[in-house]
């Protein structure tokens, strides 16, 4: 099933993600406090809150750009900058168009993943949000019709797959041993963001 996504679709999606992020804010902060400074729920919630109030341009590329800019200016934490980097990759790819096709989402996720890996100087398998995005890009490539459910399942499965491994990137790396058995906060944030799209 193909669907055209316009700038106004993005705007309503942002409102849903913002509302869902707000409801999961404390949960994400608590998960982050185990391994970091405990503000991830605030970063995600405030980032999407600010994006949801944007007056998005019709050009979807420019709309992604506005989101990137807003997200990182609300929080200059490294997670905020990584999300902004992913949005920026989508912005470059879709600049000058007024819609994108739902079949392009897997490709955009792959571009976002690669840009974020380069910016964070990290690799897949280090127990970060990138593993979740990678799983989503791969699951969607396989062309399931229930795209959103597929993406949510891929994000949730990633959290469980990595739960008993050690964090090898970012601040959580300092707690490598302790991180075994704990869900990665960034991977959890991806679950929240994707669930919010429903």
């Amino acid at each position: 099933m193909k669907m055209q996504i316009t700038s106004s679709d993005l705007k309503s999606a942002l409102r849903r993600v913002a509302a869902h992020s707000k409801s999961k804010r404390e949960e994400l902060c608590a998960a982050d406090a185990q391994l970091g400074d405990g503000d991830l729920g605030i970063t995600v919630s405030e980032g999407f809150d600010a994006c949801a109030t944007l007056d998005l341009p019709e050009d979807v590329g420019k709309a992604f750009y506005e989101m990137a800019k807003t997200f990182q200016s609300v929080s200059s934490s490294s997670f905020g900058t990584l999300v902004a980097t992913g949005l920026m990759a989508a912005a470059k790819e879709t600049k000058g168009r007024t819609s994108l096709d739902s079949s392009e989402i897997a490709g955009l996720l792959s571009l976002a993943r690669d840009a974020m890996l380069a910016r964070g100087k990290s690799s897949l398998g280090e127990k970060t949000v990138l593993d979740g995005i990678d799983a989503q890009a791969k699951a969607l490539q396989e062309g399931s019709s229930a795209a959103l459910d597929t993406a949510i399942a891929a994000a949730r499965d990633t959290v469980e797959t990595f739960r008993n491994r050690q964090n090898q990137a970012g601040r959580a790396r300092i707690f490598a041993e302790k991180s075994k058995g704990l869900p990665d906060p960034g991977q959890l944030a991806l679950v929240v963001m994707t669930e919010g799209l429903r």
């Binding site: 750009y65 990182q72 200059s76 490294s78 900058t81 980097t85 920026m88 470059k92 600049k95 910016r119």
Partner: peptide, 18 residues
């Protein structure tokens, strides 16, 4: 420093795009 490198790289992309 990690944060400065990431943010300057992002800033460079932003001024290139916009």
């Amino acid at each position: 420093y990690g944060g400065d490198v990431m943010n300057f790289d992002m800033a460079a992309e932003m001024v290139d795009f916009e």
